[in-house]
Amino acid sequence: MVKEAFYRPDKNEYFNEWEFVDKVRDDTGFIPQLCLVATINEEIVGYIMLSKALIGKHAGLSLGPLAVKPSYQRKGIGKRLIDYGLNQAKDIGYEWIVLTGGDYYYQLGFEPALKYGIKLSDNHPENPYLKIKFLYNNKQVPGIVKYCDSFYDENGELL
């Protein structure tokens, strides 16, 4: 289902979301109860994964990938998956969730991470796209985001 949501004939195959999901599932940062699917009539139509992340010594989560089958996109399935995932994460006790993405995530309460001194690394080109949502009121976690190991290539570069 993740491949169906993301595959494009001209897509760079060096990194793709469907193989990335498998890498994260084999990582110590994988949290089975935060790997969620949406179904309609027993058909899987949406998927979201939240995995462990750190900002300095502060534990939290990263969100992604979020995938919705093309024929079900723009029907609110992704939003409902994210809302459910955020509630599950909060119930477990996680304080924040980061992701790299566009303006879509603002409607779900995510904010620019740079506003809080949170970034991927100094001068990383994706820093402006890094978003964070605090599940509680603690916003004192400035620093560098460190995802679980599967987010990095063999040279330690973020995929």
Results as ranks from 00 to 15, higher is better:
159 L>Y: 15
31 I>Y: 13
10 D>V: 10
108 L>C: 07
15 F>L: 03
116 Y>W: 12
70 P>D: 07
67 A>R: 01
149 D>C: 00
141 V>P: 00
105 Y>N: 03
56 G>Y: 07
128 P>Q: 05
108 L>F: 08
69 K>S: 12
149 D>E: 13
109 G>N: 06
145 V>D: 06
39 T>D: 05
49 M>R: 04
97 I>K: 00
87 N>L: 11
64 G>V: 03
15 F>R: 11
72 Y>P: 01
109 G>P: 04
86 L>I: 12
7 Y>A: 14
59 A>G: 00
50 L>Q: 04
71 S>A: 09
58 H>C: 11
153 D>R: 07
1 M>E: 12
38 A>Q: 08
105 Y>G: 07
112 P>E: 13
138 N>R: 14
33 Q>V: 10
155 N>S: 14
38 A>S: 14
84 Y>V: 05
51 S>H: 07
154 E>Q: 09
19 E>C: 08
90 K>T: 02
134 F>M: 11
155 N>W: 11
99 L>E: 05
157 E>I: 08
52 K>L: 13
62 S>D: 08
159 L>N: 13
134 F>I: 06
82 I>Y: 00
8 R>D: 14
41 N>G: 02
55 I>L: 08
13 E>M: 15
95 E>N: 13
105 Y>R: 08
14 Y>L: 13
114 L>V: 13
97 I>F: 01
47 Y>G: 01
2 V>S: 02
52 K>T: 13
113 A>M: 09
92 I>P: 12
36 L>N: 08
23 K>G: 03
88 Q>T: 00
75 K>I: 00
86 L>S: 04
102 G>H: 10
114 L>Y: 12
25 R>A: 09
127 N>S: 06
26 D>E: 12
119 K>H: 13
10 D>P: 06
27 D>L: 08
20 F>K: 09
91 D>V: 06
33 Q>T: 10
61 L>W: 05
